[in-house]
Nucleic acid binder design. Structure first.
Lengths: 219, 219
DNA sequence: GTTCGATTTAAACGCATGTTTGAATCTTAG
DNA sequence: CTAAGATTCAAACATGCGTTTAAATCGAAC
C-alpha cells in the first residue's frame, strides 16, 4: 500500500476541515495536525492558506465538470437528439454521484462549494468561474437546443434557479437520499423550464397582486 | 432628527460587514469603528460577537417572515381560494421587496442569509430554524391545499428546491433586476411543482439513462 | 561515500483578534 | 445639587493566527 503524498494528505484534511468549519475558522494548525504533517508543509507546497483553498477546489471541480461534460456528450450523441431531462441529468447527476466517493468526502465538498458561492472572496470566485464558465455555456447551449425559440436571458436565469436548487439541496440534505433527490430535481427543473416558456407580456395579476404598493415608489 | 441608538448603529454596521466579508473575517474593531462607537460597546450591549450575529438575524427575519405571513393570509382570504402562484408569490416577494430598504441593506442581508445556510454553525442554525419553522409549515400547508393529493415528502423536497433557487439567486444577482426575477422565479417554481406531480413509479428511462453503472453498486 | 537539491522539522516572529477591566462620563431621579 | 445607575471610554490581556526562518533529515546521482 503506497502512502499518500504529503500534498494529498494536506488537501484531504483541508477539504474536510474547510467544509466542516469554513475557511477562516479552520486553522492551518488543525489541518496539518489532522494530516499528520508539519505546519510549514502547507507553505512549502502551496504557498499560503488561500492558495491551499484554491488547490482544494481545483482538484474536485476538474473531476466534477469533466464527468458532467462526458455525460452531456453521451446525451447529445443519441440518435433522436437529446431530451431536456437527459441534459439536466448530465448536470445534476455527477454532482450527486460525487457524494459516493470514499468516506463521503464528496458530500463535504458540496458544502464547501455552497460556502464558496456564498463567499464574497474575489480570487475564489474567479477561480471557480474559470472552471465553470465553459461548462455552463455548454449546458446552456444544449438546453436551448431542446427548447427552441426561448429568450436566452430568461433561460440563463432559469439555469441559475436550477443551480441554486441543486447547490442548496446538496449542502443541506443527508447522504442517503441523494439518488431520489437527483431524480426529483431533474423532474422539477424540467417542468419549470418547460412550463414557463415565455414571460408574461404585461404584468398579469397572477404574480403582481398587491405588489405595486410595496415595491414601486408610489408616484 | 433623533440619532439612532448605539445598539442600532452596531447592528447596522455589523449586518453590512458580516454580509460583505463574512462572520469571522469581519472584526469587532471594524464594526465598532464603522458604527462610530467604542469597541467595548458590543460586549456591553450584546455580550459577545456570536450573540451580535444572532441579534442581527433576529431583527431582520422577524420582519421578513411577518411580511410573508401577512401576504399569505391575504392570498388565502380570496373568495375563490388561493392560487399556487399567489402562495409562492407571498413567499418569494417579500424577500425581494426587502432589497429596497434604505441603502440596499436588504440585499446585503440576503447575502448574509445565504452565508448562514452554508454555515455549519449550530447556534445560528437553531436560531434561524426557530424563526423559520413555523413559517415554512404554513406555506407548505397552503401549497398542499392548492395541489391536493400530493405526496407530502415530495412536496417538502420541492419546497426546498424553491428555497434554494430563491436564496442562491438573491445572493448572486444584482439589485436592479429583483422585480422581474421574482416574477420569473414564481413562474418557474409553479411550473416545477405542477409539472412533476408524481414520482415515476418505476425508474423510467428519462432520468436514469446510464445511471445505474455510476450510482448503484453493480450487483 | 559524498554531495547536492528536495523535503521536513521545531521554533520563533509579528500581529490581529475577542474579551475584560476599571475609571470616566453621561443620565436621571430624589 | 447630589447621589446612583447606566453607559462610554481607553487601555490592556491572553490567545491563536498565518507566516518565516534556519537547521536537520532524506534520497537519489555521481
Amino acid at each position: 500500500m503506497t502512502e499518500p503524498t504529503t500534498c494529498d494528505r494536506i488537501l484531504d484534511a483541508a477539504e474536510a476541515l474547510f467544509a466542516e468549519q469554513g475557511f477562516h475558522p479552520a486553522s492551518l494548525r488543525q489541518i496539518t495536525q489532522a494530516a499528520g504533517v508539519n505546519l510549514a508543509a502547507v507553505h512549502y507546497h502551496f504557498g499560503s492558506k488561500q492558495a491551499l483553498l484554491l488547490a482544494v477546489f481545483r482538484r474536485r471541480l476538474d473531476a466534477l465538470n469533466q464527468a458532467r461534460l462526458a455525460r452531456l456528450e453521451e446525451a447529445l450523441a443519441k440518435a433522436d437528439g437529446a431530451r431536456l431531462e437527459d441534459v439536466l441529468d448530465a448536470f445534476v447527476y455527477p454532482a450527486l454521484a460525487f457524494s459516493r466517493g470514499s468516506d463521503a468526502d464528496g458530500h463535504r465538498f458540496m458544502q464547501l462549494l455552497m460556502r464558496a458561492f456564498a463567499d464574497r472572496d474575489e480570487d475564489l470566485h474567479a477561480a471557480i468561474s474559470s472552471e465553470y464558465a465553459f461548462v455552463m455555456r455548454r449546458f446552456a447551449d444544449a438546453i436551448a437546443q431542446t427548447l427552441p425559440g426561448r429568450d436566452p436571458e430568461l433561460l440563463r436565469r432559469q439555469l441559475d434557479f436550477t443551480v441554486g436548487a441543486l447547490t442548496y439541496t446538496m449542502a443541506e440534505s443527508s447522504l442517503a437520499d441523494t439518488r431520489s433527490i437527483a431524480s426529483d430535481l431533474v423532474r422539477f427543473a424540467a417542468a419549470g423550464l418547460r412550463g414557463s416558456g415565455q414571460r408574461a407580456a404585461s404584468h398579469d395579476s397572477t404574480v403582481q397582486t398587491g405588489a405595486r404598493s410595496t415595491l414601486e415608489t408610489s408616484s
